[in-house]
Simulated scan of single mutants.
Amino acid sequence: MSKVWLITGSGSGLGRNITEAALAKGERVVATARNIGQLDDLVNQYGDQIRVVTLDVTVEEAAQAAVQVALNAFGRLDVLVNNAGYGDIRPFEETSSEDFKTLMDTCFYGVVYLTRAALPIMRKQRSGHILNISSVGGRLATPGSAAYHAAKWAVGGFTEAVAMETAHFGVKISALEPGGMRTNWVGRAINKRPALLPDYEASVGALLKMMDDLQGQEKGDPVKVADVVLQLAYADELPAHLLLGVDAAQGAELAEQQRAADAKRWHEVTISTEYE
């Protein structure tokens, strides 16, 4: 029997790939996007197999309404893919509080709101998969993405905690942590780059130059990532965190090595704070 999916950020990028893969498999999908016109071709191709919903994930009432569409159309909800998000590469000092909050609202609170809307349904069903598209940037950081890393680290902690709460009644939750993919994430992230303050040229400026060279050459294939997402939606067990991509695995390993080295170097300070 096919599953019922709700996928955020379906209009483009990885969300579009996941939506296409699910529909091709015969799944029933509620596809959401800010601009649902991007989904017209899928509606024409798949008809009653798909419902499209205009969704701003930063609005909790809209998240509730999107989940209700799945119930009204298909009678249940089996898979939630929290995919909507974006990057914005600039120094923290040159990121306004409004821009920082908007990114956090999209990349983190969007996950919270959709999960809150879906979880009661899945709990009553005693089954469900919630797949949160995070990033290797939820395990390591680079200069110029303080808001993005804050959001993705938050997604990882949120996922791990809620997964522990729900596993015993059949709801499986995982944070997927891909590396670079050819989804134009880089192009959008550097599109609004500021004129850097000179003091940030050595850190954020160097990262921006690297991103320019990387754009369009990322190692990750979003079509293959979408195939993995379909497999996970039928898995009996899920890891709390799953790295996707050779670059993700390598980057995470280097970050863990640095943390381990720091922990060893500062061990005496760490244990010095205990009561005698």
Rank of each mutant, 00 (worst) to 15 (best):
A146V: 15
L55P: 09
R126L: 04
H241P: 00
D227H: 09
E201F: 01
G137Y: 03
V67G: 07
R16D: 10
D247L: 02
K25V: 09
I18P: 00
I130W: 00
L242H: 10
L242C: 06
V112I: 14
R123G: 10
F100H: 08
M1I: 13
D212L: 01
S97T: 14
G13F: 03
Y113V: 11
E256R: 09
S134I: 01
Y86N: 10
G179I: 09
I121N: 06
L238G: 07
M104Y: 07
S2C: 06
A260K: 08
V223C: 06
P194G: 10
K209S: 13
N83I: 05
A195S: 08
A261P: 00
R28P: 05
G9K: 02
I50G: 03
G9P: 03
A118V: 12
W266P: 06
G85Y: 03
L232E: 13
R34K: 12
E256H: 11
V30E: 12
D41A: 12
D105I: 11
Q68P: 07
A189S: 09
E94H: 05
P222F: 03
L242W: 07
A118P: 00
I36C: 09
A63Y: 05
P91R: 10
V223D: 12
M122I: 14
G128I: 10
A70I: 09
P178T: 13
V246G: 03
I133T: 09
A22M: 07
A63H: 06
A252H: 12
E274M: 08
M164T: 14
A151K: 00
E201A: 12
E274R: 11
A261K: 05
P194M: 07
S12C: 04
P198S: 08
A255F: 04
A118G: 04
F169N: 14
R16I: 11
A22S: 11
L103M: 10
E268C: 02
M181H: 00
A189K: 06
L23P: 02
A31Y: 04
